[in-house]
Amino acid sequence: MGTSVEMGAAEDGRYEQWARRSGPPDNEVPVVVPVSAVLGRGDGVAVVLAGVAAASNSFSLTIGVQLRQQPEDDDLPRQVTASGPVQGHLLLGLEDADGRRVSTVQHAGWPPQVEDTTLTMTGRGGGGGGRIYDQEYWVSPLPADGPLRVVVRWDARGVPETVTEVDGAAVAAAGRGAVELWPWEAAVEPDHEEDRGRRPTDGWFSQP
């Protein structure tokens, strides 16, 4: 029993750590970084860096896709937003100046095995239609001083593997300027015992 409790506590700690790094801090206002770039091009398609915003311990990348003509198939949204070894999807990778790497091909596993020094990238919201699509990723921690290499490849759309360097020091400096609204606090887990109030008070369904 003692071992189970200890493992559960460890998993809770890893989950809390992952939750803090997989999205924008809910107690901060991130700083927009004035950077944009064409990351890769194919015949009638461009992959662009459409936006960067930095918080105190992490930052977002918004990857945009612009098409010259309306796509003839309806598989484009999946190709842009998919992660893992999905056939035909847009591959995105990051390499920090200190050599740490992360990409959309990797799977983090569960519970997440992340340390403060591990480079992580989590897909957030995305969408679009017609000839413009985008996908946001949240990356942690902030980049080291030096070039942050952004690597894209999209075989299904004829975009060759292309490397673009972004000023990691500028992103980190922006993060240090993020506005803290209030001290960070761990989210309160919902009390699932409250669900029992929806059960009948007698008979078979009254039992958990």
Rank of each mutant, 00 (worst) to 15 (best):
H192P: 01
V52E: 14
V188W: 01
S83P: 00
T104W: 03
V114T: 09
L76R: 10
I63Q: 07
L91W: 02
R153Q: 03
V150D: 01
A19F: 03
S4P: 04
E193N: 14
T118Q: 07
E28G: 06
A46S: 15
L142I: 11
G129D: 05
V188F: 06
L49Q: 13
M1A: 13
L90S: 00
G168Q: 02
T81A: 09
E161A: 09
G51L: 06
E72N: 12
G2R: 07
Q66A: 09
S60D: 14
R131T: 15
L39Q: 03
A108P: 10
F205M: 01
G42K: 02
R101D: 04
A144Q: 13
L94G: 10
V47H: 01
G146Y: 05
G146E: 05
E185W: 00
S83R: 09
P141Q: 00
V171N: 00
W204E: 04
E28W: 08
D75P: 02
S4Q: 14
M121N: 06
P200H: 04
G51I: 11
H192Q: 00
S60V: 01
W18K: 14
Q87H: 08
L181S: 02
G126F: 03
A169T: 06
D43K: 01
M1E: 06
P85C: 06
R131A: 06
Y133M: 05
A97K: 07
D75E: 08
T122Q: 14
V38Y: 01
T201Y: 03
A156K: 06
R20A: 08
P111A: 10
V171A: 03
L49H: 15
L148K: 02
R124E: 11
D12I: 08
V139Y: 05
L90M: 03
E72M: 13
A108K: 08
V52K: 12
R149D: 15
D75L: 11
R21F: 04
L181V: 11
P143Q: 01
G175W: 10
V188I: 14
P71F: 13
E95W: 00
V150E: 05
D191M: 08
R196N: 13
V35W: 05
V151N: 05
L76F: 06
E180S: 07
A53F: 04
S58F: 11
D134R: 15
P183V: 10
D73K: 04
P85T: 14
A9W: 14
P24C: 06
W138K: 02
E161F: 01
V151T: 13
